[in-house]
Structure formats: structure tokens, C-alpha cells
Design a binder for these strands. Structure first.
Ligand SMILES: [Mn+2]
Ligand SMILES: [Mn+2]
Ligand SMILES: [Zn+2]
Ligand SMILES: [Zn+2]
Lengths: 152, 152
DNA sequence: CCGGTATCAACAATGATTGTTGAAAAACAA
DNA sequence: TTGTTTTTCAACAATCATTGTTGATACCGG
């Protein structure tokens, strides 16, 4: 994702108008590595703008995704997560307990599908989701503690 | 997943009763490689039993998942898919257009996370989702044709 | 300044899934 | 066979993330 300033320019040049809400969302997303959901973005933005609506957040996130400035992620946590890190291709670590999502910056160049194993699919991309326990949840996982079920 | 006969025994020995509905679901799942959703299982079972309720299908699928006989999959198609192939670990090919899901039986033993890249996560499993176009959709993809958006 | 967006609140709707109820049917142990 | 327990069913309502709607107000930008 580009800087809020560049996004401002991009929005304008793509026929969109610049509002305080949108710029606030730009700022919140900038450098954010937590892969927030729309709700989470809304909560963060609400600190600065108490009256911003969740609807507006969804709209702006969709605009950003449409422009390729953020990526919509579905890692099975029940809510779409948004990722401003569009620069380097990467994979994700997902905590089974608290559902936090972190980047895993590693190549894995060996995702070549063996001859004939692709069943005729024309494969365009591959995503790896590593599931486990984040550092925080390892501490609080003394003995018991059920995982949060993955979506429904 | 075991055979319908073995599942019948397993259900009984786990305190569950055997019904015509459940056995019908066992049969439909047996050897099914399409990763059906609950709705799809319901549709298939309905051919034999017109009055079976979707609720019953959900219940039985959950029982089977609880017993480890099938796996619940979330590959971003909006509906949970069920996989009776619990024998060999494998990954999945997902069609961007029709959302069909097929097995990709390949090792990928090189999913070792580089030192320090795991951010302290205690990683238990890794799933790879390959996205692309299935053979059928390659044919009907002459020129245009929008992808079905991934969940929401 | 003016026209077109954007935002807001408030609300309804979606779609997959789960919960509830009460009645009827079936399973199965004795 | 009988009696207890489970399961199923229909018909609903509820959930949760997300999208749509409306009408009024605000404000961006040429
Ligand atoms: Mn990421
Ligand atoms: Mn599979
Ligand atoms: Zn955690
Ligand atoms: Zn397809």
C-alpha cells in the first residue's frame, strides 16, 4: 500500500473524492501488520473519529482493494482480513486460539506441482496458511483451553 | 473415512443410533472427491430420501467430523466443504470460477519455515490452496468471464 | 457557488449455519 | 414386545458478517 498522500492522489485521479474518513482509514492501515478485519479497522478509526460508520469503512476498504492497494484475505477466521502489504508476496501464520494473523516472509519456491497432479487445473496462485499458536497464546495455554472453531 | 459398515459400528459404539438418514449420508460421502458442502450433500441424499432435512445433514456431518471421519474445510468459497479423504495428507486446487475443489496429492516436504521467520508461532499444520481454473472453466473462459468473488 | 459524491443513521436483507419447539417416528436394550 | 432414549421433521427464529436502501445532511472540488 502506498502512503496516505499517494493514496489521496490516487483516489482523486480515479474520480473518487477525498474525505477525512478516508484519509483516517489510510493512516490506520499504513504499516499495519495485524491484518485487521473491517470491524477492527472501524474500531481503530473510531478513536479519532467517533461517528464514522462501519458502512463507510467497508466502502473504503473495497475501494482500496479495487485499486489493488490492499488485499482481501480469507484465512478461515470468519471475517475478511485486510492486508496493506502488497509489496512482497508472502504467506500467513494464523493462531488457532486468538485468530491473530501475521506475515510469514519466506519464499517456498518449491510449490511446483508435480507433472499430472494438477488434474488439468490452470493454477494461477498458491497461498499457504500455517496454523498454530501465537506467542501470547502459548503462555496462556497452560493445560486446557479450547481452540476457537474455524468458521461456523 | 471408513466404509459405511464400519461407520455404522463406530456410531453405535460411540452411543449414537443408526438411522436410514445417517447411512444414506455415509454412502453419499464414501469415495466422494468433490468436497461437497452441506447443501450439496443434502441435494445428493435427497435423491434417495426426498424428505431428509438439511438440519439432519448438518448434524451428521458434525458427528462425522467430531469422530475424525471427515474434515471440515474452509477454502474461501463461502461454505464449509467436507472432505472424507482423511487418509493421506494433501492440499487443494480451487477453481476461481465455479468454486470446485479437487485434491492435490503431493508432498511439499519443504514447508520448513526458515529460522526466525515464524515470529515465535508454534506451528502445527500447513495448508496450501492453489487457485486457478478447472478444466471445464478453461473451456468456457473464452475471453471474458468474471471470477466469483471469494466470500463476501 | 454548484453539482455530484460521500456520509450518516436507521433499518432491512442476504446466506450459511445454528438453535428451538413439539410432535412423531424410529432405534435398541431389556 | 415393551419402554426409554434418540433422532428426525417442519417450521421457525436467531446468529454473524456483510451488503443494500433511504432520505437527509455535509462537503469535495472544479
Ligand atoms: Mn500479510
Ligand atoms: Mn481433499
Ligand atoms: Zn493467539
Ligand atoms: Zn471451474
Amino acid at each position: 500500500m502506498r502512503t496516505p498522500e499517494e493514496l489521496t492522489e490516487l483516489f482523486r485521479s480515479s474520480g473518487r473524492k477525498i474525505t477525512a474518513q478516508r484519509q483516517c482509514i489510510f493512516r490506520v492501515l499504513q504499516g499495519n501488520e495485524t491484518h485487521p478485519s473491517a470491524e477492527t479497522v472501524h474500531a481503530m478509526v473510531s478513536v479519532e473519529m467517533e461517528t464514522i460508520s462501519l458502512k463507510t469503512v467497508y466502502q473504503t476498504l473495497h475501494d482500496l482493494a479495487e485499486l489493488g492497494e490492499i488485499i482481501s484475505l480469507d484465512v478461515g477466521t470468519g471475517m475478511t482480513r485486510f492486508d496493506p502489504n502488497t509489496g512482497d508476496p508472502h504467506h500467513h501464520l494464523v493462531c488457532r486460539k486468538c485468530r491473530s494473523v501475521r506475515d510469514l516472509v519466506a519464499g517456498f519456491p518449491d510449490l511446483q506441482i508435480p507433472e499430472g497432479a494438477d488434474l488439468g487445473f490452470e493454477v494461477g496462485s498458491a497461498e499457504i496458511v500455517f496454523r498454530g499458536l501465537c506467542p501470547d497464546c502459548q503462555l496462556s495455554a497452560q493445560g486446557q483451553g479450547a481452540d476457537i472453531p474455524v468458521r461456523a
